[in-house]
Simulated assay, not measured.
Amino acid sequence: MSSEGRSTDRRVRRTRNVLHRALIELVLERGYDRVTVRDILTRADVGRSTFYTHYRDKDDLLLLSSTDYLRAAMTAAAADTPATEPLAPMRVLFGLAADNPEVYRALIGRKSGTLLLRTTKAMVAEILAERMRDRLDMPEAEFATTITFLSWGVIGLLGAIAEPDLPLSAEEAYERFARLVGPGLASRVRPDD
Score class of each variant (00 low, 15 high):
residue 74 M to V: 12
residue 153 G to Y: 06
residue 75 T to A: 15
residue 95 G to V: 07
residue 50 T to D: 00
residue 106 A to V: 08
residue 126 E to R: 10
residue 90 M to W: 09
residue 132 M to R: 04
residue 30 R to W: 06
residue 107 L to N: 01
residue 151 S to E: 00
residue 9 D to E: 15
residue 7 S to C: 00
residue 69 Y to M: 06
residue 47 G to I: 08
residue 60 D to P: 05
residue 96 L to N: 01
residue 135 R to W: 08
residue 115 L to K: 15
residue 58 K to W: 08
residue 121 K to I: 15
residue 92 V to T: 13
residue 141 A to Y: 02
residue 87 L to G: 05
residue 167 P to Q: 01
residue 129 A to K: 04
residue 1 M to G: 15
residue 110 R to Q: 08
residue 167 P to N: 04
residue 33 D to M: 05
residue 8 T to I: 15
residue 61 L to S: 04
residue 68 D to K: 07
residue 75 T to Q: 07
residue 117 L to F: 12
residue 138 M to A: 00
residue 186 A to N: 08
residue 40 I to A: 04
residue 163 E to D: 11
residue 181 V to A: 11
residue 137 D to E: 13
residue 160 A to C: 08
residue 143 F to V: 03
residue 62 L to G: 00
residue 180 L to W: 01
residue 101 P to V: 08
residue 148 T to M: 10
residue 85 E to G: 06
residue 192 D to N: 11
residue 182 G to V: 05
residue 101 P to S: 07
residue 137 D to V: 07
residue 140 E to I: 03
residue 72 A to L: 13
residue 130 E to N: 07
residue 25 E to D: 14
residue 179 R to W: 15
residue 63 L to D: 01
residue 170 A to E: 07
residue 28 L to P: 08
residue 186 A to D: 14
residue 139 P to F: 00
residue 92 V to C: 10
residue 191 P to E: 07
residue 159 G to F: 08
residue 16 R to W: 12
residue 82 P to H: 04
residue 73 A to M: 14
residue 86 P to N: 10
residue 96 L to H: 05
residue 192 D to E: 15
residue 72 A to V: 13
residue 181 V to P: 11
residue 47 G to S: 01
residue 90 M to A: 12
residue 5 G to V: 15
residue 96 L to T: 03
residue 69 Y to C: 02
residue 31 G to A: 01
residue 146 T to F: 10
residue 57 D to M: 05
residue 87 L to H: 09
residue 117 L to N: 07
residue 81 T to I: 07
residue 54 H to M: 02
residue 112 S to P: 12
residue 180 L to A: 12
residue 111 K to G: 03
residue 192 D to T: 11
residue 189 V to C: 09
residue 124 V to N: 07
residue 54 H to P: 06
residue 70 L to H: 06
residue 42 T to Q: 11
residue 57 D to I: 06
residue 190 R to M: 09
residue 81 T to P: 15
residue 149 F to E: 01
residue 7 S to R: 12
residue 124 V to M: 10
residue 167 P to C: 05
residue 106 A to E: 05
residue 35 V to L: 09
residue 43 R to K: 13
residue 165 D to A: 02
residue 120 T to V: 02
residue 20 H to G: 09
residue 155 I to M: 05
residue 86 P to G: 00
residue 15 T to S: 09
residue 20 H to N: 06
residue 55 Y to D: 01
residue 5 G to E: 15
residue 158 L to G: 06
residue 135 R to M: 14
residue 105 R to L: 08
residue 122 A to C: 04
residue 155 I to A: 05
residue 64 L to R: 10
residue 54 H to Q: 00
residue 15 T to R: 02
residue 62 L to T: 03
residue 120 T to N: 06
residue 51 F to I: 04
residue 193 D to E: 05
residue 177 F to I: 08
residue 160 A to Y: 15
residue 115 L to I: 07
residue 9 D to K: 09
residue 66 S to N: 06
residue 175 E to I: 11
residue 132 M to K: 00
residue 35 V to W: 10
residue 129 A to L: 05
residue 16 R to K: 09
residue 94 F to Y: 06
residue 160 A to M: 10
residue 12 V to H: 01
residue 50 T to H: 13
residue 110 R to G: 14
residue 58 K to S: 00
